[in-house]
Each structure stands twice: as structure tokens, then as C-alpha cells.
Simulated assay, not measured.
Amino acid sequence: MQIVTMGGVTVGLLLLVYTLITWWPGAKALRKDPVAAVASLLPFLVAWAYGVLAILTVGGLIGWVADTTLWISNWLGDVALVWGVGGQAGRQGATVSYLPLTQPGSGVVLILTAVL
């Protein structure tokens, strides 16, 4: 089970902010047809939520892919924090532990993987 570092959180938030910036249709378009504008963002939000849920899987191929992705984003984020802005690598400031998914939760991840 991987621990999320501040570097991993930074990379995840950078991807989210980048997507929101490139998606932003402008205030005029949002006022004119907000449902269509938000609908164009929906596929990304579904995939992002699935990725967050997949990180909680503990085993199997899906868990291995999610843990590998988390490890890479932790490593890249820590490198960027240390070499980019002079920060420190490592765990988050607050000590927290997350609970892995239960059997029904793992079933939901498998179903979502098949659907996506």
C-alpha cells in the first residue's frame, strides 16, 4: 500500500488545475449555456473520480496499476518540490491513514473498470 506524499498531491492538483484552465469556456459561454459547458467537463471528472477510487484498491492488476501510478506521481512531485522550489520530500504534514476498500468497494471498482 502506497502513502501519498505532498509531491503526489501536488501532481494531482496540477493535473486538475491544468484541465480546468484548458476547459474554461469563458464567463459568457457559461452564462449562455452552463449545462453544455459543464457536460464537456464531465468525462474528465468521472475519470478523475475513478482514479481516486482506484488508489484505494489493494490488490490485483487494478491495484498494481494504481499503486504504480501513485508511486510515479509521488516521485515526480517530490523531485519537483525539492529541485524546483527547494522544498522537502516525504510524507504529508498531517499523519493520516486511509482504509482500503471493502469487498463491495472492490467489486464497484471492477465494474467501473469494465465500464470505463
Results as ranks from 00 to 15, higher is better:
L30S: 12
V35C: 00
L41M: 11
V4P: 00
G7E: 08
V109W: 08
A94V: 15
L116W: 14
W75F: 12
V79P: 00
V65G: 01
A29S: 14
I55C: 06
V9S: 05
S106W: 03
G59A: 13
A37R: 11
V58P: 01
P104V: 03
L30Y: 11
L20C: 12
G77R: 01
P25V: 07
A54D: 03
S106R: 15
L16P: 00
W71M: 13
A66Y: 02
A36Y: 04
G77D: 00
M1T: 09
G8A: 01
V85C: 08
G8I: 03
G90I: 10
A37K: 10
A37T: 02
L13I: 09
V109M: 13
G105H: 05
Y98V: 15
L14Y: 06
V9F: 03
P34K: 04
G105N: 08
W64S: 12
A37C: 13
V108K: 00
T69M: 08
R91E: 10
V109S: 03
G107Q: 09
R91F: 03
P100C: 03
W83D: 10
V11K: 12
I111T: 11
F44Y: 15
G51L: 09
G51K: 03
S73G: 00
W48Y: 15
T57C: 11
G7I: 11
A27G: 10
L53Q: 12
V65L: 13
L14C: 14
P100S: 06
P34I: 07
V17D: 01
G77Y: 05
L110Q: 11
V65M: 08
L101T: 04
G77S: 02
V109G: 05
T95C: 05
G7V: 09
V11E: 03
V4R: 14
T22E: 08
D78I: 04
V4K: 10
L61W: 12
K32W: 08
G63P: 01
L42A: 15
V85D: 00
D78Q: 05
R91W: 03
I62W: 02
Q2V: 15
G93H: 12
A80T: 08
L76C: 10
N74F: 01
P43A: 09
Q88T: 09
V52H: 10
P25L: 04
V52K: 09
G63A: 05
G105S: 07
G7W: 11
L116A: 14
A89G: 06
V4W: 09
R31E: 13
G60P: 03
L112R: 06
Y98I: 14
I111W: 12
V85E: 02
W24K: 07
L116N: 10
Y18N: 05
L41P: 07
G84P: 05
S106Q: 14
A39F: 09
I72E: 00
G51S: 07
Q92V: 09
L42D: 03
L16T: 11
A47F: 13
Q2R: 15
G12Y: 04
W64C: 04
V38E: 01
V9A: 11
